[in-house]
């Protein structure tokens, strides 16, 4: 029977302590200095990892965030399995994901403006399901456009389309 993992007691209840313990252990073994920002909500926990330099952050974010996605997947698996906490743990490095979200929200708003101005539906570049969701959500309350997706993964794209005069 396991009683500890990553030197943390499985009876530990303090989420922040657990997350810092696991990630701290991982980055200590990788010989990296790290700091953490943790924000807990009812359904999710946001964890921002701050590394010592931009180069280091890029190394652990990886191309298109692949390494970061891996860290998030493993950490969620470890936490759900061992600590009875089924919230989604969103792992970020140097605010990378937050910046992506801001970028996508801007992109959505710009596409809506362009659609209105030109009278043409705007087809965005292919993007991940997570990214498409941000576009849909950003424009869901927009008075002049609506959104839908076309194409097959991994080339699925969002279309920002004009509503007719009745707002439909």
């Amino acid at each position: 029977m396991k009683t500890t993992i990553f030197n943390i007691k499985l009876s530990e209840k303090d989420t922040s302590k657990i997350v810092k313990g696991i990630l701290g252990y991982i980055f200590e073994k990788l010989e990296e200095d790290v700091n953490f920002e943790i924000r807990e909500k009812d359904t999710e926990v946001y964890v921002n990892i701050i590394l010592s330099s931009k180069e280091k952050q890029a190394q652990f974010i990886g191309k298109q965030g692949k390494v970061l996605a891996t860290l998030q997947y493993l950490l969620n698996a470890i936490l759900h399995r061992n600590f009875n906490d089924d919230r989604l743990f969103i792992i970020d490095i140097g605010g990378y994901k937050q910046k992506q979200i801001d970028y996508l929200k801007n992109l959505a708003i710009e596409a809506a403006i362009k659609a209105k101005k030109t009278g043409k539906d705007q087809i965005l570049q292919p993007m991940s399901a997570m990214a498409r969701k941000i576009i849909h959500t950003t424009l869901s309350q927009n008075a002049s456009v609506y959104t839908y997706s076309i194409g097959k993964e991994p080339n699925r794209r969002v279309v920002v389309a004009l509503k007719n005069k009745n707002g439909e």
């Binding site: 396991k2 993992i5 990553f6 252990y25 991982i26 073994k29 990788l30 493993l74 698996a77 470890i78 399995r81 061992n82």
Partner: peptide
């Protein structure tokens, strides 16, 4: 790296020993 990999795998299994 070896120790780290071992610790991660132990956290994912039923028989860490």
């Amino acid at each position: 790296m070896k120790d780290l990999l071992e610790e991660i795998v132990k956290a994912l299994v039923d028989h860490p020993e």
